[in-house]
């Protein structure tokens, strides 16, 4: 599976530039409106329509935006951090959706586990979508061609890697969070990601050091933590749009 982590992006970029919603993209596809200027205009319009999100996470933070070259910028402050989590939740939902549909050689129990992981990630994803409102990134497009869905263990191995990136992301961004509500929500989700990672690992090698994630835990018994840049480096090979965390808070 190391090959997955070290994989570089196969495709140069999205064939359709990223824009703020699936509906809008479908509309554009139907209309054949692919010109960059039209997209830029639509994106600009969407910036004017922004209403305050339900959260209290603005405090000067910048919303997500789609740059001229199609790069998805996650925004700044707590908005950026929440969008990073939302990015991973979108990725996980897309992955588990594909796994439930395509994975070969899986038992009924395997499928039930994948479905359960899928369902939780839907909840996390929908939470961030509602929480961020107009500050959210658009729906992203994914490429899981590096995952061998014909091999059951490869599917669970990819699952545990995605879940552990989630654990590392929440741990690493926790101290960067400004708003108490965002910190609390992150805390409520990160332990679920850790439970997911353990379950996915258990499906490969139950009752083992591996199941406990031992290689990620240091000599003080502390779990790993990732910076936003490290998170994106691990997730980017599976995301068609380029993700930028340039405006996220720094340690």
């Amino acid at each position: 599976m190391e090959k997955i982590n070290s994989l570089t992006e196969k495709k140069a970029g999205p064939t359709v530039p990223a824009i703020p919603s699936v509906e809008r993209r479908m509309f554009l596809r139907n209309m054949g409106l692919f010109s960059a200027s039209t997209l830029a205009l639509l994106t600009a319009c969407s910036r004017d329509e922004i209403v305050a999100p339900t959260g209290t996470i603005r405090s000067g933070a910048r919303d997500a935006s789609v740059l001229a070259d199609g790069t998805v910028d996650l925004g700044s402050g707590d908005i950026g951090i929440a969008n990073l989590a939302y990015t991973l939740d979108q990725l996980e939902v897309a992955f588990y959706t594909m796994a439930v549909e395509k994975a070969m050689g899986v038992s009924a129990e395997d499928k039930r586990v994948l479905q359960e992981l899928h369902d939780h990630e839907i909840v996390h994803k929908e939470f961030f979508k509602a929480f961020l409102g107009s500050a959210a990134i658009p729906m992203l497009d994914f490429d899981f061609s590096a995952v061998n869905f014909n091999e059951r263990n490869a599917v669970f191995d990819a699952a545990q890697k995605f879940e552990d990136v989630g654990v590392g992301a929440f741990n690493g961004t926790g101290p960067l969070i400004d708003n108490d509500d965002v910190l609390k929500i992150a805390g409520k989700m990160v332990s679920i990601e850790a439970r997911h990672a353990t379950l996915a690992r258990h499906m490969i090698q139950p009752k083992s050091y591996f199941a406990l994630g031992h290689e990620l835990i240091d000599a003080n018994g502390l779990d790993w933590a990732l910076t936003p840049e490290e998170v994106v480096a691990k997730a980017q090979p599976f995301i068609k749009q380029k993700i930028s965390v340039a405006n996220l808070p720094k340690m």
Binding site: V190, A194, G213, I217, L222, D223
Partner: peptide, 8 residues
């Protein structure tokens, strides 16, 4: 936070 996720 790092201890928290290990407990989980």
């Amino acid at each position: 936070l790092k201890i928290h996720s290990v407990e989980a």
